[in-house]
Design a protein around this nucleic acid. Structure first.
Lengths: 205, 205
DNA sequence: GTCTATAGAGGGATAGAC
DNA sequence: GTCTATCCCTCTATAGAC
């Protein structure tokens, strides 16, 4: 797509198909698969229901497309970064913390969406994610194991990931109760880009 | 309830109402509100659909009962423990890590269930959880602030909670991909009862 | 390609017998 | 209190005109 076309797209001159996909991203992500009605998606796109089926045949089909995108998005930063053979453990930690948190700030609903849909329908995802090869046996995990031989590297990795992702999963709770507002949340997460690497390095000593 | 009656209850001589509630706990927790059919609950209980409505009027009503229980369960350990004025920061950390992880091991689906339902329908929970008073302004938070004046105590608290809860949220992913089985998961979480307090204390220095 | 109208199934809820 | 049968609305999906 050319820059000119992208500009047009942003001004709501998307193709009908893209309008529906974009609407589906919004509605599925917000409500989850089961609570989403195809009518909601058509309405969000400003179109009628028949077009939905003309382009995507079924709710299930479009959901699979969106879900694939979202799983990809959640892993696309981290899997290559974990397996980069050309930087040190400390460099990986710094880079991932900054860039992953930035990505999550742009897509705050992503983790809870993906994780809750996997829980609701685990069968669908047996093949999608190659967790074992690209995450649990990654270069990063080997570097962790070398650095500290006393602690299972999976334990460190779970903590690293949890410190980044968990706040986004609890975000709706904080917002609903009015305990932490949007701006305060962003500030916290930006602080964490430096705090988390500092902490993880302490845990490695 | 007497011990004799409890014994009977465990032998599947529950009252009809309790059978339905128990079935609802299982099905709602596994599938979420939207994907659950009242027929699923009746079937799980080995009863017919009419009894469901006889005892609970509507799906929504029974869901609210179960959800209230589950939110309570998720917070009942932690809120009093956070506000116990009679122990030190270190004692709180040790106690919470052990007991909260034990509770989660007995109720592994609890966090993802509660958090995803809150996201799906935030309006319902504005009043339920008094996060601000009992968590974010707890005795524990004040103790964290005193111990280390350089770091926002909310940041430490988020990490503490995240390290305990996050593995349970990703559990379905690990299981589906076959990367970590049931027994290995339990072993990891039991290790974390000691690892997490050690780490948090490092982060406080 | 886009729309209106509608078929058809599913699922929450109730009537009424026992 | 428990059951079978069924109502009826909602939601997915399609037919068919333009």
């Amino acid at each position: 797509m050319t820059d000119a076309k992208e500009q047009l797209a942003e001004e709501n001159n998307l193709s009908t198909e893209e309008k529906l996909k974009e609407a589906a991203r919004i509605v599925f992500t917000k409500k989850g698969y089961a609570a989403t009605k195809t009518r909601d998606i058509a309405e969000e796109a400003g179109l009628n229901l028949a077009l939905f089926h003309y382009y995507f045949r079924s709710k299930e089909k479009l959901f699979e497309i969106i879900m694939m995108e979202k799983v990809q998005q959640l892993f696309s930063f981290i899997a290559p970064a974990l397996n980069n053979p050309d930087n040190t453990l400390e460099e990986k930690i710094d880079w991932i913390a900054t860039n992953y948190i930035d990505m999550l700030l742009k897509n705050p609903d992503l983790p809870i969406f993906v994780l809750s849909e996997i829980r609701n329908n685990p069968e669908r995802f047996g093949k999608t994610v190659q967790l074992d090869t690209y995450v649990l046996k990654s270069h990063f995990i080997r570097q962790l194991a070398e650095k500290n031989k006393n602690v299972n590297p999976i334990q460190l990795f779970l903590s690293f990931l949890g410190m980044m992702v968990f706040p986004f999963i609890t975000k709706p709770v904080f917002e609903t109760t009015g305990a932490v507002n949007e701006a305060a949340f962003k500030h916290l997460m930006n602080e964490r880009k430096l705090l988390i690497p500092k902490w993880i390095k302490m845990m490695l000593e």
